[in-house]
Write a protein that binds this DNA or RNA. Structure first.
Lengths: 232, 232
DNA sequence: ACCCAAATGAACAGGATACTGATATGTGAT
DNA sequence: ATCACATATCAGTATCCTGTTCATTTGGGT
């Protein structure tokens, strides 16, 4: 989920922005001056964007930004009154990512928010999705398509990999063979019950020490298969 | 050096921007319509920023941007006439990074340019400071366009170089042949699967000791290729 | 303990994918 | 114009993956 921090001393503006963003499906956090915003940002590392007024009591936007940049690269969009050109440029050089002049159109706000979030996640320093899933001593690195068991690389085929990934995304959950088929093959399962079973067996040969007594890839009779951390 | 592409059909504007940017120490490249700009961007991967008008003959800014995004994440700043609000927002959603309304102040232009470049280099894996990427005993010096394996210079062609650079920017990550094609050629992959494979082979002949048993440039069956340091 | 359904194990043939060598086309330099 | 080099295309081969079949074992309900 994309969480956005809104910071302005005028509560009406905060509330308005809050409504626009919530309508677009974003999660929001509110602050009413710079130091409050900083405190929230230090605590909550899941905030992916900051929208902040420049003129605020206690600690203004410029100062807050220069403090913020000491510990985070989170994108910041400044709100400015119409004619503060000097502030605009100053803010941009300090490391703000964008600014919006008040008053603004809702559509412009959401467009800039989308754009800023897109940049942040696309350039990929902090990606939204977890790239490595691990259960017990199995780890799955998705971009590298690499699976390790007890630190050793195991070579899985594409299908085996997809099945393992599916199970590992929700450890403990039982997947019926038909469900696995639909998710992995993207097709209706019809007379293919055994297909999944065969791949499960091959998977076990590769990731289990004793395939007959699986540590991880367990069967639930009449229901399906699941992945489970060996310790529980 | 930061190279910037300026693209507008009004030659006076291009010249004006050119002067501003040269005065700030930037390197510039000029184009007068979208397709010209695209051609330049495909050939010259060192362009770090694009400043482009929305309204242009031949191929307009919006179309050029959507083509561009298929093979590059280079930041784009749009130029717009004063009241084209609809275009503004459309452009931002497509992946533009900023826009400037005409007429604009020189100071505002340079501020936005600095800001866009800062974002691109700070957040990206493609940073200006990290000019040399190395994986295992392969090193790639981008400004010098020089590749060394175990200290010896190897002569790569442009295509080979671009492929290697793409893979080395994210070591371990698997790139599908089609993905490599779009990123390097800047075109849609259609019946070109073998093309990539052949270049991979050429690359291996040059950087691997035994191309049949590659140390670095590995294949992941049914997935694509990746570069990996032999030791990890 | 019995039976049936579900799960496992092994082997095989067809299919898909990647690699290789040869050839044709394009491009820039001399 | 010619040459050298880079690039694209093609066909053949090797390799690996996949889904099937069939026999066997395991588990649970009665």
């Amino acid at each position: 989920m994309n969480r956005i921090l809104i910071c302005d001393d005028e509560k009406d503006i905060v509330r308005a922005i809050d409504i626009y963003l919530k309508a677009e499906g974003y999660d929001t956090v509110k602050a009413y001056n710079g130091s409050e915003a900083l405190k929230l940002l230090k605590d909550d590392k899941d905030i992916r964007l900051v929208i902040m007024d420049i003129m605020m009591p206690e600690m203004d936007g410029i100062e807050a930004l220069s403090e913020l940049r000491k510990f985070s690269n989170v994108p910041v969009i400044f709100l400015t009154a119409k004619s503060e050109d000097a502030d605009k440029i100053l803010g941009l050089n300090l490391g703000a990512d964008d600014y919006i002049t008040k008053p603004f159109l809702p559509a412009e706000l959401t467009a800039r928010v989308r754009s800023a979030l897109r940049r942040y996640t696309m350039l990929g320093s902090i990606s939204t999705e977890k790239t490595v899933i691990s259960v017990g001593s199995i780890s799955l690195d998705d971009p590298a398509k690499e699976v390790r068991v007890d630190g050793d690389i195991v070579n899985l085929t594409k299908t085996e990999y997809e099945i393992l990934k599916l199970l590992m995304q929700e450890p403990g959950k039982v997947f019926a063979p038909g469900e696995i088929y639909t998710k992995v093959w993207g097709d209706d399962p019809y007379g293919t019950e055994n297909t999944v079973a065969v791949h499960i067996r091959r998977l076990r040969e590769k990731i289990e020490i004793d395939p007959a007594k699986p540590r991880y890839l367990k069967v639930v009779w009449g229901r399906g298969y699941k992945i489970e951390g060996g310790s529980r």
